[in-house]
Design a protein around this nucleic acid. Structure first.
Lengths: 350, 350
DNA sequence: GCGTACGTTTTGATCGTTCAAATCCGCTCT
DNA sequence: AGAGCGGATTTGAACGATCAAAACGTACGC
């Protein structure tokens, strides 16, 4: 409570207008530049003067105006992020992702600015607008499809940006991604270590880069675990969601030689699989190992609590912001990609 | 594609620096103020001049610099939103809520700025900082507890803000909320109309304002439907999550006179209830009516697809932004609260 | 022909900050 | 005493825009 007082309370000198360098300068009987120096390069100012100015700053509750600073610095210290449209169907990771980005940005003196294209303009225009008006210094992109038009556009114009995920665009750009293949492979390894020999995979339809890599992880994992060539019958794919999980598991359990464990491409699919298992009287965790992907907030609350592959989003956020601020600072090194490893969170379902 | 060209491409006059009013003025052989007028008050400028200036603007790809404008206007056109910490356990509505806010803000010429308090400072300080530095013009608050310190702090200092949800603070402030009581009551009415007579409620622990109001809706709904006094045995409460739903439903179905339908305080609870029903061989939708709350993205993909109470977040966003911009504009009318009505989305589970 | 009015355009000042260069001051050295 | 020096501080200009007021024409009425 007491600490807030320093900041902007006690506006003894008129509650209307925020104090400026000039106000402080006058109060401390120095020039505005000296005030500025006290704030930005205290070592240049005589200790005695510094103390006097600092006292005035504290007294008036002076804080440098951000807009004025930004204008002078020709930078906004804002990073744009296009908030995905509602159509994408609710991303359970958005919460953590945004928090991680915001936190990482704060540590570097940046803030995240959310935007969304208006109906008449397309996506690229929305980005162009923010750059042209100097509203943002760069972008964080996510959910980039194959051939995302934003990547090439931004890249061509030298606008700083970092992508969460990878695309197949062949222009140089920086990206950060989580290695889904390794993640799924580690889940397979975990299940194999628990004695499972027939391990199935329920994933998304072929054609999405992320989905395909997760499916590859199943193959890799089986091979690495020495379980021989993967049985194609144990790989089922469908749209994301519990229904796919339920139907796929039903199908798998009806096989002549059914799996004893299943890895899924998402927690949503796993939820469906858990439900289907219960319906058939198969006890998940004991008779059937189940592993999800993304460690969504529900995972620990499911019955049984769901083992899941957790993306290191905090690290993702820090890495993205690190790359981005480096680019903004003009350090335009060879753009590079960073691949982070997810972590298996083991719970009772496996 | 062609349209992008207008904005900032074709930097014929040096790719380095964005064009300013002065550049345009020089190109069109007029003064900077005339350029400014063409942009902001075209009617003041002679049509012929206007055309010439507009041509220069288009040619150079001029867009007024936002920081400069903001400095002069002493407004940032940014609205702060503190992104909830990870501890809150993943809000399935955040996605839609942020999108709605962003979209509504855009329509009014605002952007959303995300922030989070750093570890050493408390929440109020984080807000104070943004105000003192002129970084934001106002705030949108959510997840305000009873006695949230931010509300009184902001209110005392006349900082514009609007709360999503209600608190019990007795200072005047504007808020927008969704009427959970009416929502649950309408679900009860819906189930009664389908012939259900014994309708249960599974909700959150007593003590949260939102949770209590949803529970009240159950009472109201039963009374309004003429089903007599609610049976206390049919109201079960526990922490949010599928587990609570499963355990509560198990308990309810074991009663001497079990319910034939259940309304829950969240989709997560409903998920658990659906799973428990399956385990006991009760077919949800047919033998047991189930209604969730929030219409989270999973709801339509559950088995059976879940009837749920959907918050009108788009409307919430527009209302919040409307109230907020009015306050920022100085129109400081009597702060008021707006209560919006949720909508029941009927699917197979009921 | 001259004062006035109006429509259009330009000039000056300002928003709050920082950079760059100039000034001031006390001190040493010759 | 005057030049030289270096630390501390101040002044001038700029960032890019807008507001307010002045200036400029041109046309009109008397």
């Amino acid at each position: 409570m007491a600490r807030h007082g320093r900041l902007i309370t006690s506006p003894r000198h008129g509650a209307g207008r925020a104090p400026t360098v000039n106000d402080v300068a006058e109060a401390a009987a120095v020039s505005r530049q000296t005030v500025s120096n006290v704030v930005n390069s205290p070592e240049r100012v005589h200790p005695q003067t510094r103390a006097r100015v600092q006292a005035a700053i504290d007294d008036l509750g002076y804080r440098p105006n951000r807009m004025a600073r930004n204008l002078q610095a020709r930078a906004s210290r804002l990073v744009g992020y296009r908030i995905p449209g509602g159509s994408s169907g609710g991303n359970p990771l958005l919460d953590r992702f945004l928090h991680a980005l915001t936190e990482a940005a704060r540590a570097d003196g940046y803030h995240l600015l959310l935007f969304t294209p208006d109906d008449e303009r397309d996506e690229v225009d929305a980005h162009a607008d923010l750059v042209a008006t100097g509203t943002v210094d760069g972008f964080v992109l996510s959910e980039t499809d194959y051939g995302d038009s934003r990547v090439s556009w931004l890249s061509e114009r030298g606008v700083p940006f970092v992508v969460f995920g990878r695309t197949n665009i062949d222009v140089p750009y920086s990206w950060v991604d989580v290695d889904g293949r390794t993640g799924v492979a580690s889940a397979v390894a975990h299940l194999a270590a628990r004695g499972h020999r027939r391990i199935a995979f329920i994933g998304w339809p072929e054609g999405s880069a992320t989905g395909d890599r997760r499916a590859e992880g199943w193959v890799t994992g089986l091979t690495d675990a020495g379980l021989g060539a993967p049985d194609p019958a144990l790989c089922v794919r469908g749209e994301d969601g519990p229904r796919t999980g339920a139907e796929a598991l039903d199908h798998l359990l009806r096989l002549a030689d059914p799996p004893t464990a299943v890895v899924t491409a998402s927690d949503l699919i796993a939820i469906g699989a858990l439900a289907a298992a219960r319906t058939r009287g198969v006890e998940a965790g004991a008779a059937l190992g189940v592993v999800g992907f993304d460690d969504s907030p529900v995972a620990p609350h499911l019955l049984p609590p769901l083992t899941s592959i957790r993306q290191p989003l905090e690290q993702v956020g820090r890495t993205i912001v690190g790359l981005l601020t480096a680019r903004i600072a003009g350090a335009a090194p060879d753009p590079d990609g960073v691949l982070l490893t997810p972590e298996l969170v083991v719970r009772q379902s496996s």
